[in-house]
Amino acid sequence: MLNASFIGRVYPARGTYLVGREKVREFARAVRADNPVSLDVEAARAAGYQDLVAPVTFPIALAMEAAEVVIMDPELGLDYSAVVHGEQGFSFARPLVAGDELEIVVTIENIRSAAGNDMITVRADAATLDGERVVTATMLLVARGTAA
């Protein structure tokens, strides 16, 4: 059973995440996002962007990395070996573009248990160093059988 007093806990940004052009391209190829703005810098610039536009689900890479601070928090006691991904959401204030340097703040939005499973909702808010909000990724992680 997870400690419900962790609801609302905020983990400040640890360093920054720099969105790399080749990482965007690699991710786009992996998910077959073949829109030119994600592969061709000239096409991205013609569309009004400084550099390649990241595919819609690209922020999972930075959100998962940032959420490790929660997953690995010994005080919370989440059994990572039992964790499956239950739900995922992305909400963009603007498209994510290669060259963006982001700080990611992680918040525990909710903790509950149902049917013997521990469920934790983790939100990762990514903003530029100037404080411009770019994208929020919200994930529901389910630890199977750990709430019994």
Partner: peptide
């Protein structure tokens, strides 16, 4: 991809969510 191909690119999708 079904949505971004229709919408004209990833930059036009502002929100996306699902359950697994």
């Amino acid at each position: 991809n079904v949505v971004t191909d229709w919408a004209g690119g990833p930059e036009f999708v502002t929100d996306y969510s699902c359950r697994f």
